[in-house]
């Protein structure tokens, strides 16, 4: 009986890393949006927080697009 432990191991590793990275990235985006609100109520510049937040969301969107390409393959 041949059990492909290597494939199972890589599924485990990839799933863990990708999930944690994506959720972390997305949460950072939310933190950025939240910071932007705080900054705008204080009257400070919102450029940095906005850019950071949208960078994070863009990376998440790219991951979703890659996921769709995997489904179509």
């Amino acid at each position: 009986m041949h059990i492909d432990w290597a494939a199972l191991g890589s599924v485990f590793g990839v799933s863990l890393v990708v999930t944690v990275a994506l959720v972390g990235l997305f949460t950072l985006g939310i933190v950025g949006l939240s910071k932007r609100e705080e900054a705008s109520t204080r009257g400070d510049s919102v450029a940095l927080a906005t850019t950071g937040a949208y960078m994070c969301f863009a990376l998440c969107a790219a991951a979703v697009a890659y996921g769709i390409s995997l489904i179509m393959a």
Binding site: V11, V31, L33, S34, E37
Partner: peptide, 28 residues
């Protein structure tokens, strides 16, 4: 596999996002 990944992801998102505003996190 899914459970371990979800557990660490949940911990991380609570830790990182503990100071966010209700409005931004709800929508996000």
């Amino acid at each position: 596999v899914a459970g371990v990944a979800a557990m660490f992801a949940t911990r991380l998102t609570y830790k990182l996002g503990q100071h966010t505003s209700e409005k931004a996190s709800g929508k996000g």
